[in-house]
Design a protein around this nucleic acid. Structure first.
Lengths: 355, 355
DNA sequence: TAGCCTCTCTAAACCGGTTCAGTTTGGGTC
DNA sequence: GACCCAAACTGAACCGGTTTAGAGAGGCTA
C-alpha cells in the first residue's frame, strides 16, 4: 500500500520553475538580496559591472519582483482609484466614463499601474468607499470626477492624505491639481450660434446644479444670452438623465409661447428632447432648434443630426492620469487647462420659423 | 540656537495613534500574534472567552488587519478583475458595462473586494493584460465578457489557473462556470411579433459574428424566420457600432425591394437605423418596423419609442459576481441560467403598409 | 605608515500578517 | 497515580521585497 515513492520525481520535474524570488537571483548572482534590490531600483551604491551582472541574472531567471511583497514594504499599492457615484440610469446613458477610463488606462497600463473602480449608489457610500480604499491601501491616488458644489470629498481626501486630481476646478479651496476643460466657450458658442440664426426665445435644459459642470453650463447659458442682448431665457433643472430631459422638453414645448430653441446640458437629454419634439409634432429644426453637449457617438446618427459641443473625454483621461502620476512622483503637479470644447454644427439647428 | 527640546512632547501627542498592528493587539490582549490571527479568522483552537476578549481589544484599538500584509502571506489580493477589449466607440455607446459593473460592485463592496478594471484596445493586449494581472497577483479571479468564437482566453486562463466566470456559455469546452442569459427567445419573439403583424420581408442587422452573442442572435433570427414560415431574410453583419448600424440601414433601405422590418442586434444600431430611416424619408413604423436589443434607456425616449428586448445587465453583474465568489470560495460553482430577456413592444413596430 | 574617506557590499531588521510544530494545561480513564 | 489525549496557546518561520547600520577594501593625503 505504498503511496508512490517516486513522487519526488514529479516534484523534481517541476523544479524547472520553482518560484524565483529575489533570494534566488541574489544567490545566483553571488550577491546579497539587498544589492539586488538596489540594482533593480537603480539606486547608487552598486558598481556598474555588478549591476549589469545582477540584471542579467534576473533576466535569465525571468524574475519579476513580487508586487505584493513590494507593496508591503513600500506601503504603496501601485494602483489608482476611481469612485463613481451616479444614478445607474444616468451612468448608463452617458458615455463619458467609458471613454475617460480608456484614456486613463492608456497611461496607466504602460506604467504597470492598475485602476481600481468603484461604482456606488450615493454620496454617503462614496465617502465611505474613499475611506476604505485608503484604509486598505488599495490605491495610491484617486480621480475626483463629477465635482459638486462645496464638495465633501476635497476635505476628506486632504485629511486622508490621499493624492488626488480633480476633473475641473472645485469651487472652494483645494490642495489638489485640477485638470480642466472649460465648459463656458462651448455653451457660449451654442447660444451665439442660435442667436445668429435669429432665435430670441432660447431655453436651457440644465443638469443638476449641485454638480459643478451643471452649474457652470447654466451660468454660461445665462451669460451668453445677456451678451447676445437677448431676454432672459427659461431654464429647467434636471438630473442629467434621459427621462428628465424628455420631461423638461415636454414642459417647455407645451407652454403658450414655447422657445424656438433649446440648449441642453448634455447629449442624452438632447436626444430625448428630439424624441419628445417628434412626439409632440414639433419639427426639428424647422420649428425648434436643439443643441446638445458632449458630442457622443449617437449625435451624428439621430435625425436630424445633433448640433453639439465636442468634448474629448479620452484626452481628459490621459491628462488626468499623467497629472496624478506626476503628483505622486514629485509631490506636486500643475493644473492643466485642456483646450475648450468646440461647437459642432449639424442639422438640428436652423433659423426659427416665420412666426 | 536650541532646536525645541520639547519636540518629544509633540511626538508624545501623536502617541494616540501609532499604527496599531496585530502585534499591538496581541500584547494588549496578553496573547500571541498567532492567536489573534486565529481569533480574527474564526478558526478553531481559541477558547470562547479568549476569542471574545481578543476581538474586544481589537475593536477598542480600532484594529483593521493590513490588506497588504495579508495579501503577502495568503498570496491573494481580494480583488477581482474585468478586462474589456472593445473599440472605444462601441464601448462608449453601449451602456452594458456601466450597468454590469454597478451590479458587480453591489456584490463585491460588502465583501470587501475591489474591482480592477482594464480597458484595452485589442485582443493581443487583452491576453497580455490577463497575464500581467496574474503575474502581479492583482486579482484572484476574473470576469470574461464578450465571448468570442473559439475564445483564446479560456485556455489561457485555464493555463494560468485563474478562477473565472464566463458571461454566456463558450462554444468550446470550458472549465469555468457560465452565467448565461439566453439570447434566442428574445430574438425569436421579435421576429414572431413582426410576423404576426404581417411582415414578410424582415432583415437583420447583425453584430460581429466573431462575438458569440452576435452569432447567436443571428442564428436565432434565421431560425425564427424558418419557424414563422417566412423566406430567408437579409442579414448585414456589422461591428455593433452606431456608425455601422447606420450604414447597414442605408444599404438595406436603398435597395429595390427594401425590407418592411429590421431586427437589430443591439439598441444603439437600432437607434442609428431609426435616424437613417428618417433621413431617407422612410416613416417608422408606417413604412418600416424596427426592433432593437438590450432596452437601453434611450429606447423609451426616441421617437417612436423602440420595440426591443429587455436585458438586465445589472442582474447579470450581480449573478456573475456571486458565482465568481462562490467559485473561489469552494473551488467550484454551478452554471447559472438567468431568465431570458423579454420582448418589450413599443411604437417602432406596426403592420406593414399596404404596398 | 597611520589615518581617513569613499565606494561596494552584506547582514539583519522590517513591513504585518498567516501558519505550523510543539509546549502547556486540564480532564478523563484505568 | 500513571498515562493519554484534546484543547488552548506560544514561538518562530514564512511570504518577498526594502532599508539601514556597518564591515571591508582600496586609494589618497600627510
Amino acid at each position: 500500500m505504498n503511496i508512490p515513492a517516486n513522487l519526488p520525481a514529479s516534484t523534481a520535474m517541476k523544479s524547472t520553475s520553482p518560484k524565483v524570488t529575489i533570494e534566488v537571483v541574489a544567490r545566483q548572482a553571488g550577491v546579497s538580496k539587498g544589492l539586488v534590490s538596489f540594482a533593480l531600483n537603480n539606486r547608487p551604491g552598486v558598481s556598474p559591472e555588478t549591476r549589469v551582472r545582477i540584471l542579467q541574472v534576473a533576466k535569465d531567471l525571468g524574475w519579476k519582483p513580487s508586487l505584493r511583497a513590494r507593496s508591503l514594504s513600500t506601503q504603496r499599492s501601485y494602483a489608482l482609484g476611481l469612485v463613481i457615484a451616479r444614478n445607474p440610469d444616468v451612468l448608463a446613458s452617458d458615455p463619458f466614463f467609458p471613454s475617460f477610463i480608456a484614456g486613463v488606462e492608456s497611461i496607466l497600463a504602460p506604467e504597470g499601474r492598475a485602476l481600481v473602480l468603484s461604482v456606488v449608489p450615493d454620496e454617503e457610500t462614496e465617502l465611505r468607499t474613499y475611506r476604505s480604499l485608503v484604509a486598505d491601501g488599495r490605491v495610491d491616488g484617486v480621480f475626483v470626477t463629477d465635482l459638486r458644489l462645496n464638495d465633501a470629498r476635497i476635505p476628506l481626501l486632504a485629511e486622508l492624505g490621499l493624492p488626488a486630481v480633480t476633473l475641473g476646478r472645485p469651487d472652494g479651496p483645494s490642495p489638489f491639481p485640477a485638470v480642466t476643460v472649460d465648459d463656458t466657450p462651448g455653451v457660449m458658442a451654442s447660444v451665439a450660434h442660435l442667436a445668429t440664426l435669429g432665435h430670441r426665445r432660447i431655453a436651457h435644459v440644465a443638469g443638476s446644479s449641485t454638480l459643478l459642470h451643471g452649474l457652470r453650463r447654466r451660468e454660461a447659458f445665462t451669460a451668453a444670452l445677456r451678451e447676445a442682448g437677448l431676454p432672459e431665457g427659461q431654464t429647467v433643472e434636471t438630473d442629467f438623465s434621459v427621462a428628465a430631459g424628455s420631461d423638461a422638453t415636454r414642459r417647455l414645448l407645451t407652454q403658450d409661447r414655447p422657445p424656438t430653441a433649446i440648449v441642453y446640458a448634455n447629449d442624452p437629454m438632447a436626444i430625448a428632447g428630439l424624441g419628445m419634439a417628434h412626439e409632440l409634432g414639433v419639427r426639428v429644426p424647422d420649428e425648434l432648434s436643439i443643441t446638445g453637449y458632449d458630442d457622443i457617438d449617437f449625435c451624428r446618427y439621430v435625425y436630424p443630426p445633433l448640433t453639439t459641443v465636442s468634448a474629448a473625454p479620452m484626452v481628459w483621461g490621459r491628462s488626468a492620469a499623467s497629472t496624478l502620476l506626476a503628483l505622486m512622483e514629485s509631490g506636486s503637479a500643475d493644473d492643466v487647462d485642456l483646450p475648450a470644447a468646440r461647437l459642432v454644427v449639424r442639422g438640428s439647428t436652423a433659423p426659427p420659423s416665420g412666426k
